[in-house]
């Protein structure tokens, strides 16, 4: 209980500290460069200078924190990738060489590519289907709320939920996992699903699809609603049926949003870690980059060089999306 009180006190101190910083720095600026009581030329010069400095006062805490926690680590990781276990001795390209020949790394890359293909595609597809269907029925909002719900559940919590579904008991005994119970009900043999290579990765992906479909649905639902009614009415008058309207009129108008949903989920997939750690910890050929990197941070006392190399690979995979996002944001600012 003690540290919870400590946390609450920290919240108060932190917020008060930030408030005092903004208030005091602002006051100091006004004192140093007075413009209210000063005469003409000096007042306008002071005002101009104060206005040039004030934005940086407002942004300083954010800039400091972002520099230390996000910008510096990128540079440091590049530096570390050329150094050994403890990050001290220079080892040239040997970490990169290790990466190219390591079978576990290759397995992770292949799995990550599978995740990248399957999870965004299925999440976006289901999200789009539900968004399109739920808008036509009176209980659509309740349906959407329930499908959105897994978004609030942690990856670890979701892993426990699904591990229970995939639970396996030897043939002949009562199955308590839903999947095996269904399989047995239809006359099949029960399987230990998460130990079957390739398919076990798919079963892990199902968990992320289950979580992310709600996200895709919410965004796409809003996009579908913003489609002007006239285009659809015109299509109806021309005799298009429901499927034609959906695929030929509605989907083309929301391509931009579909792309945003797809890339957002792609970024999440690249970082997927919790699910693999909780379900298999990389066993049975399910290793992915983020989990491999986490292992190398601590395996054998930790190898920072190799960990940094893997982190850089994840970063490089993200860069195209980053550039595309910045490009879009700049266009919008114009």
């Amino acid at each position: 209980m003690g540290h919870l009180v400590y946390a609450l006190v920290t919240v108060v101190i932190g917020l008060a500290g930030a408030a005092i910083y903004f208030y005091a720095s602002n006051l100091l600026l006004d004192r140093a460069l007075p413009y209210r009581d000063a005469e003409g030329a000096r007042a306008s010069r002071n005002l101009r200078r104060a206005n040039a400095i004030r934005p940086w006062l407002f942004m300083l805490p954010a800039i400091v924190i972002l520099s230390v926690y996000l910008v510096y680590p990128v540079l440091e990781s590049i530096w570390l990738s050329f150094h050994g276990k403890a990050g001290i001795d220079f080892v040239g390209l040997s970490n990169y060489h290790w990466m190219l020949v390591d079978p576990e790394f290759r397995e992770s890359i292949v799995n990550n590519l599978l995740w990248l293909l399957i999870v965004p595609a299925l999440s976006t597809f289901f999200g789009l289907v539900i968004a399109a269907l739920a808008d036509r029925i009176w209980w659509g909002n309740i349906a959407k709320s329930l499908i959105f719900m897994p978004m609030a559940i942690s990856f670890v919590g979701a892993s426990v939920i699904w591990k229970f579904i995939y639970d396996f008991r030897p043939a002949g005994s009562e199955q308590i996992g839903l999947l095996n119970a269904v399989v047995v009900f239809f006359g099949g043999n029960p399987h230990a699903w998460i130990t079957i290579p390739f398919w076990n990765s798919v079963f892990l992906m199902v968990i992320l699809v289950w979580i992310q479909t709600g996200f895709a649905m919410v965004i796409l639902s809003a996009a579908l609603r913003s489609i002007p009614d006239e285009t659809i009415e015109a299509a109806v008058i021309d005799g298009a049926n429901g499927l034609q309207i959906f695929f030929k009129i509605m989907v083309p108008q929301i391509w931009g949003t579909i792309a945003v949903v797809w890339t957002t989920i792609t970024i999440l997939v690249l970082k997927v870690f919790d699910i693999v750690l909780a379900m298999t910890n990389g066993q049975w050929d399910t290793q992915v980059l983020a989990n491999l990197m986490f292992e190398w941070m601590f395996r054998g006392g930790g190898d920072f060089g190799r960990g940094a190399v893997i982190a850089l690979v994840i970063m490089v995979l993200v860069v195209p999306i980053m550039i595309w996002n910045i490009h879009n944001a700049r266009q919008e600012l114009r």
Partner: peptide
């Protein structure tokens, strides 16, 4: 930027 970048 992936969180993994910052960890080490």
């Amino acid at each position: 930027v992936p969180l993994q970048m910052s960890l080490i």
